[in-house]
Amino acid sequence: MTAASRVITGITFTTDEAKGIFEVEASDGAHLLDLATRLKAAGFDHCLSVTAEDLGDRLAVLWHISSYTNRELSGMNAQIRLVVSKSDNVEVPTLTGIWESANFLERETYEMFGVVFKGHPDMRRLLLPDDFTGKWPMRKDFPLKKTPWRVQK
């Protein structure tokens, strides 16, 4: 990976332009909120996606942000990444206070990865039935119903 970087209002993004990656890493919850506030002030006014990655013993929570009004920033799909250790209910701060559009996206991430967003106004299931018992379907240890018979890893 290239080690190019780009600085926007004092925040250094690791970039890989050919792949459309602009990433900034948050060290902990407080740093995350600080970063998000500054990025919002810099013109990132839209939250495109919230998701997580299962890294084995850790989870990386990702917020993808973009801009609707700022022509310079609107070409970027920037991402904020916060790595936390994996447990049944991982707790991270919510960014709905900063980007309201993260509301449903964070609910989905909670349902799929078991990431509890502290301070979210409405932390409930979204897509799966209420009595769905399986824990955190998008984590790597959650199996599919049947194993694909043609496609094996």
Partner: peptide, 14 residues
């Protein structure tokens, strides 16, 4: 890793 955005009929796919 990579990202992509496309304008579909109903809006942006990410």
């Amino acid at each position: 890793r990579s990202t992509a955005s496309v304008e579909a009929g109903r809006g942006e796919i990410f």
